[in-house]
Design a protein around this nucleic acid. Structure first.
Length: 116
RNA sequence: CAAGCGGGCUGGACAGCCGCGCGGGGAGGACGAAAGGACUCCCUGUGAGGAAAGUCCGGGCUCCACAGGGCAAGGAUAACGGGUAACACCCGCCGGGGGCGACCCUAGGAAAAGUGCAACAGAAAUAGACUACCGGCCUUCGGGCCGGAAAAGGUGGAAAGGUGAGGUAAGAGCUCACCCGAUGGCUGGGAACAGCCCAUCGCUGUAAACUCUAUCCGGAGCAACGCCGUGGAGGGACAUACAGGCCGGCCCGGCCGUCCCGGGGAGGCGGCUUGAGCGCGUCGGCAACGGCGCGUCGAGAUAGAUGGCUGUCUUAGAUGACAGAACCCGGCUUACAGGCCCGCUUGCAAU
RNA sequence: GCUAGUGUGGCUCAGGGGUAGAGCAGCUCACUCGUAAUGAGCAGGCCGUGGGUUCGAUUCCCACCACUAGCU
């Protein structure tokens, strides 16, 4: 990913859960916070409740793909955490993408020329 | 054709675009005297499993302990022969159990070394007598007392070998015939074991109760372990000021240097993938497996790389069966939609 | 990744081969004008699941499932 590195430390995740802005759909919950860095940082959470390792890996890859293919449409300089919920295992990719973009728009991360 | 038994293989394939980890090659390149080289781009190779899982056994490897051996404690295994680096695994075979059969299951040493336990029921649970049987005596004819015997009844998971005959007052392996079991002998077999017109005997079960016998086992685990290591704290050496900076309105006062050392938190590097490897052929062996020859290299991530979209094909259905390497092997166990192949059994029909 | 431990009434726990128990909670009755407390009584369990050993398993053995804790 061009302008994004991954978010790794547990305390950074916790800070976003407490202080970040959030938006929720049946597929994911997204937390974000402006940092002022030139790059954005993305963290993906796939909890144990989602299932075994294969299911968790699959969900994580699809979320990363959602972010990667739409990265040019987002503002940079944010910390973003995407938490997968149970229905994200069985959802269609197009459904997931629509839901993901709607949440990002709700958080004012979509660039303005993308408005329909 | 139907029903069934055993074994093996497979676990979607192909193409295009975007994207990821690692290896190789090439180009540019901040910095640097150079060696090198952060980073960027291009080409190319390669990229999860049969169970990668559970972590139940056995090893390799590393460190610690003992550095020779024995005993004890604790744990594991348990017919026999073989395979293996080793095993609780595998193969063969024996015994036992199930199935008409193909075949399946089997922790399968010792209870006559000793100790313990066996509730309830039952007269009695490892030893003796409730009912009933027989004999003698007594009798108020209901039965009572003494003795014999251990076959019948009932209880129980288990009641002292089983069936028949003889025998007797009634009975009893008391005697006989056959059968069953144990021990010894003989024969066969490499052995477990099997057989016998041989001899002696008739002994409850439980060791996944303690125990005994035989064999094996030191402990921890790659987050092991080794190396590098900015800063901060400690020690040593050098320098020492009347200068400068910071705290402070000012004075007074306090703090602040460079180099080396060892331990080492965060972090980084190695360990990290060529190995009891895989494929084919051949030879030995019933087989597990082993010998030889030829060929071949098939992930090494470090919050964890295989995804998304489209099309074609197989298919009833591929938005999915079960499921993700984390130091590496050999097994076991558990989960699993389908599909394919081989061998065999029983029944029916036809020849 | 590794190492331990625990599953028993609604809840917290005993029981370690022989009919499954305690406290709290629940229900009924008594006491009270009524409630609480107290007293008497009652019901509630495939002992996490499946096999095995045994005459007999909650207990012993094996394999699974779920949960908890520790190391890092």
């Amino acid at each position: 990913m061009e302008h994004t590195v991954s978010l790794k430390q547990n305390h950074e995740f916790r800070r976003l859960y407490q202080k970040g802005k959030s938006a929720v759909s049946p597929y994911f919950a997204i937390y974000c916070r402006r940092t002022g860095r030139p790059q954005s940082r993305l963290g993906i959470t796939t909890g144990v409740k989602l299932g075994n390792a294969v299911k968790r890996n699959r969900v994580r890859r699809r979320i990363r793909e959602l972010y990667r293919t739409n990265e040019h449409r987002f503002f940079s300089g944010y910390d973003i955490v995407v938490v997968a919920r149970t229905r994200a295992i069985f959802g269609r990719y197009s459904e997931l993408e629509r839901s993901f973009l709607r949440l990002m728009k709700k958080l004012d991360l979509l660039k303005s020329e993308e408005k329909e």
